[in-house]
Each structure stands twice: as structure tokens, then as C-alpha cells.
């Protein structure tokens, strides 16, 4: 486990209901709420709020770390996150995760800090977002 350097997450498919539900609470702009308005927008189709993609990036990365035997707790810091293209209805989001340095301690009690690079793809091989971040991973037995 300790020499694992890259991980691949599971898949979360974006559907119109989830995109609209998130947008109505957090990002009520026409291209996230209404198919017709979205078709005529600069994005050219109904697409997810960038913050929905960001939150899903952390979820996918966290699940992949847990699959690999590391007890992911939360994302604690983001050096940068770039939205590279819109995430449309039907995209099957998955993340490729590169593990960087691990350092003791951090802002979360009883946890180490793990550096990650997370690239989220749309299911057709296109990267939609890239995040450099730090996450908290539980110290064994805590």
C-alpha cells in the first residue's frame, strides 16, 4: 500500500436532476437550471455548477483513498483548482489521483496531511477539472 502512487476512482454519472437540484440551491444561473437556456448559452448545454464538480472531486478522491486503505477524512487545503471544460448531463465523472508527500500533523486532529493531484475526467477521456490539494488522513488507531 505504501508504494501506491496513483489511484483511479469510481464513477459518478451526472444527470439533469442532480445538476438542477444543486444549482437551485447553490448556483441558480440559467445554464445550470434550464435546458433551453443552457443550449443557447456560452456553454452550449446543461452543465453542472463548478462547485458541484469541485465537491464531487473531493468525494471521488476520498473514496479512492479509502479503497486503497487510507482513512480519508476531509480536504483541508486547495493550492489550485482549474475548471477545464463544462461537465454536461451524461458525463461519467471519474478521478485520477496522484499521491504526493505525506507529512505529520495538520489542521485536523489525529490526522496526517497527504498531498494530492486530482484530475477529473468526463468518461470520454477529457479532463474537466484539475485540483492540487491537501487532505487529512486518519492516523492509524485514532
Amino acid at each position: 500500500m505504501s508504494d501506491v502512487k496513483t489511484l483511479t476512482s469510481g464513477v459518478i454519472a451526472l444527470d439533469a436532476e442532480a445538476i438542477k437540484a444543486f444549482a437551485s440551491l447553490f448556483d441558480p444561473q440559467p445554464y445550470h437550471l434550464d435546458q433551453q437556456a443552457a443550449d443557447n448559452s456560452i456553454f452550449g448545454g446543461l452543465c453542472a455548477s463548478g462547485w458541484q464538480v469541485a465537491a464531487l472531486s473531493s468525494r471521488l478522491a476520498g473514496e479512492a483513498l479509502r479503497e486503497a486503505g487510507m482513512t480519508y477524512i476531509t480536504t483541508t487545503h486547495v493550492d489550485s483548482m482549474r475548471w477545464l471544460r463544462p461537465s454536461f448531463v451524461g458525463d461519467e465523472l471519474m478521478a485520477r489521483i496522484s499521491l504526493g508527500e505525506q507529512s505529520p500533523g495538520g489542521p485536523v486532529p489525529d490526522a496526517h496531511t497527504q498531498d494530492l493531484t486530482v484530475t477529473v475526467e468526463d468518461g470520454a477521456g477529457h479532463p474537466v477539472a484539475e485540483m492540487q490539494c491537501q487532505v487529512a488522513v486518519a492516523v492509524e488507531g485514532s
Partner: peptide, 15 residues
């Protein structure tokens, strides 16, 4: 609160 929730609410308040 989960961290991205605070950012999502930032977006709502901005809109």
C-alpha cells in the same frame, strides 16, 4: 459542515 458546502453557499450568496 463539509468544506465545499461553505464554498457552494458562497456561490449562492454571490448570485
Amino acid at each position: 459542515a463539509s468544506p465545499w458546502h461553505l464554498c457552494a453557499m458562497w456561490m449562492r450568496k454571490m448570485v
